[in-house]
Design a protein around this nucleic acid. Structure first.
Lengths: 225, 225
DNA sequence: CGACCTATTGAATTCGTTCAATGATAGTGG
DNA sequence: CCACTATCATTGAACGAATTCAATAGGTCG
């Protein structure tokens, strides 16, 4: 049952059981706890069962750069396969739980289960797709709208509500990820509220006008690209 | 021999031959020719044999957004596996040649060749890694320096010279990718020249001070992250 | 050689940042 | 249960990095 949430491929009942027995280890994390840090050797991927994570680096001037957020149903650590080491830090933004997937084990298992092999590549592909979301030269409003539409979509993909968002990350984290100042995040959200696009109360965002928000985000958003 | 350049895994001689016979089809492209366009169904990955490509989208306002450049030895189309459709346009920036890798064929073959299986995931992982390069909130100078260090590194990975760069892309493309105006690209390059970091003559860039350039790029660069 | 496109350089403008102050929220301990 | 504190979020005003507008220079190709 955990395995199904971890790598929800179209495996048979028996395969899912085998997968669970062989490769998944459930691991709870508290807010602020790190899954790994820059430079750590790569051994396992992590599939998020519940909660939320951020990946970030600290540059030589001490500035933090949020590279990605991770939501339930997604894989963490995909970028580390290539270098066999983690290039970023990844920390839990709320109490969370992940399935640890020892890379060697899932690779071996994927030879027995073609569907698992396909699923791994699909999920790796999805990561490329997601990371591309914030690329491109867009205004602060466009990026903010695209961010909300994206988060909404990524949560929906795994069965969570789409209109009522519980953002685990702080304004600082959002700002950092979106390449803007926290003040700008506040200002843009305030403008969206004035325009009736949404209702923002700290970490709780209610999207009132999905279509209108998507229009601001335009085709920046991968779901409408 | 082509196969070796396409997916340079550590395959045996026989495996390489089998790979070539079964899955690779060489395909030459002229400057400006498209490999695929937004919305095209996904059937094949492309491994670059020679030349240079850019992936881009056009938004609803008609603005172009360069999402990535692709160099010899790299895979094109990785992001399309997930959606089974291409989300971006990809075009040749100079006369180039690619190996077309029908996805179904390489997947089937990868069950017979464990090393190919591993290699595919490594290359997918690398794409995530590369796409992350321009993420983060850095100044125009930092991004430009990181871009040059990255291109240098990616070309070196596949045996090309590292200090003397032959940029196939226009200033417009670079600017677009780096989220800045073409004028800013010119100005930053001029500043780098004045500081003795490099010598820029249109598409030919000679890096004079690798260390100095890397310092400007700081830990933004994935190679130094 | 002239037409065209790309690149460079200069001056004015602007979007978003930085600086600064205030408001709101949650956690702590008396 | 209510100060008290610390942290996070919001709002206002001044500033600045990069853009936009505008003009010039350099290369390429008929």
């Amino acid at each position: 049952m955990l395995g199904r949430r971890c790598l929800p491929a179209e495996l048979t009942e028996n395969q899912t059981l085998e997968f669970e027995n062989k490769v998944t280890r459930s691991k709870p994390l508290e807010l602020g706890e790190h899954l790994f840090r820059t430079g750590d050797a790569f051994h396992s991927l992590y599939a998020i069962h519940s909660g939320c994570f951020k990946s970030y680096t600290i540059d030589q001037e001490g500035r933090e750069h949020v590279l990605n957020f991770h939501f339930p149903g997604e894989l963490i650590g995909v970028d580390a396969v290539y270098q066999e080491a983690h290039s970023a830090n990844t920390t839990a933004l709320e109490n969370s739980s992940v399935c640890q997937l020892p890379y060697q084990s899932i690779m071996e298992l994927s030879f027995e289960m073609p569907e698992l092999h396909y699923q791994l590549l699909r999920l790796f592909s999805r990561e490329v797709f997601y990371v591309t979301t914030i690329a491109g030269d867009f205004s602060a409003e466009e990026r903010m709208a695209a961010f909300l539409v994206m988060v909404s979509g990524r949560l929906r993909t795994h069965g969570q509500s789409a209109a009522t968002l519980h953002l685990a990350m702080s304004r600082q984290d959002i700002a950092n990820y979106m390449r803007m100042a926290t003040e700008t995040v506040s200002r843009v959200l305030a403008r969206f509220e004035n325009n009736g696009l949404l209702d923002a109360d700290r970490k709780n965002i209610i999207i009132l006008d999905t279509k209108g928000l998507a229009e601001v985000a335009m085709c920046m958003n991968p779901y409408t690209r």
